[in-house]
Computed example of a mutant assay.
Amino acid sequence: MQRLKLFLPLIIFAGLALLFWRGLSLDPNAMPSALIDKPMPAFSLPTLEDEGTPVDESLFKGQVTLLNVWATWCVSCRVEHPFLVKLAEQGVRIVGLNYKDDPRAAREWLVKLHNPYELSVIDADGRLGLDLGVFGAPETYVLDKTGTIRYKHVGVVDDRVWQTTLGPIVEQLNAQ
Score class of each variant (00 low, 15 high):
Met1Thr: 12
Arg3Lys: 14
Leu6Gln: 11
Pro9Met: 05
Leu10Pro: 02
Ile12Lys: 00
Ala14Thr: 10
Ala17Cys: 00
Ala17Val: 10
Phe20Leu: 15
Trp21Lys: 11
Ser25Thr: 15
Leu26Cys: 05
Leu26Thr: 14
Leu26Arg: 12
Asn29Leu: 13
Asn29Ala: 13
Asn29Cys: 09
Ala30Ile: 06
Ala30Asp: 13
Met31Cys: 09
Met31Asn: 11
Ala34Gln: 13
Ala34Ile: 11
Lys38Gly: 02
Pro39Cys: 02
Met40Asp: 02
Pro41Ser: 01
Ala42Asp: 14
Ala42Arg: 12
Phe43Cys: 02
Phe43Pro: 07
Leu45Lys: 03
Glu49His: 03
Asp50Ser: 11
Glu51Ser: 13
Gly52Ile: 01
Asp56Phe: 01
Glu57Ala: 14
Leu59Gln: 04
Gln63Arg: 15
Thr65Gly: 01
Leu66Asp: 07
Asn68Glu: 03
Asn68Met: 00
Ala71Phe: 10
Ala71Ser: 15
Cys74Lys: 07
Cys74Gly: 03
Cys74His: 08
Arg78Asn: 06
Val79Glu: 15
Glu80Trp: 05
Phe83Arg: 00
Leu84Ala: 09
Val85Met: 01
Lys86Gln: 14
Lys86His: 13
Ala88Phe: 11
Glu89Asp: 14
Glu89Tyr: 07
Gln90Thr: 06
Arg93Thr: 05
Ile94Ala: 06
Gly96Ala: 09
Leu97Tyr: 10
Tyr99Thr: 01
Asp101Gln: 02
Asp102Asn: 15
Ala105Val: 04
Trp109Ile: 08
Leu110Phe: 01
Val111His: 11
Asn115Ser: 14
Asn115His: 10
Asn115Met: 09
Pro116Asp: 04
Tyr117Trp: 10
Glu118Pro: 03
Leu119Cys: 10
Leu119Glu: 01
Asp123Glu: 07
Arg127Phe: 07
Leu128His: 06
Leu130Met: 14
Asp131Met: 13
Val134Thr: 12
Gly136Leu: 01
Pro138Gly: 02
Leu143Glu: 07
Leu143Arg: 08
Leu143Gln: 04
Thr146Asp: 14
Thr146Pro: 05
Gly147Asp: 00
Gly147Phe: 02
Thr148Tyr: 07
Tyr151Ala: 05
Tyr151Val: 06
His153Asp: 01
Val156Ser: 06
Asp158Gly: 03
Asp159Thr: 11
Asp159Glu: 15
Val161Met: 09
Trp162Asn: 09
Trp162Ala: 11
Gln163Ile: 07
Thr164Asn: 12
Thr164Met: 12
Thr165Leu: 13
Thr165Asp: 14
Gly167Arg: 10
Pro168Arg: 11
Ile169Trp: 09
Ile169Ser: 05
Ile169Leu: 12
Gln172Ser: 14
Leu173Ile: 09
Leu173Ala: 09
Leu173Arg: 01
Asn174Asp: 12
Ala175Met: 02
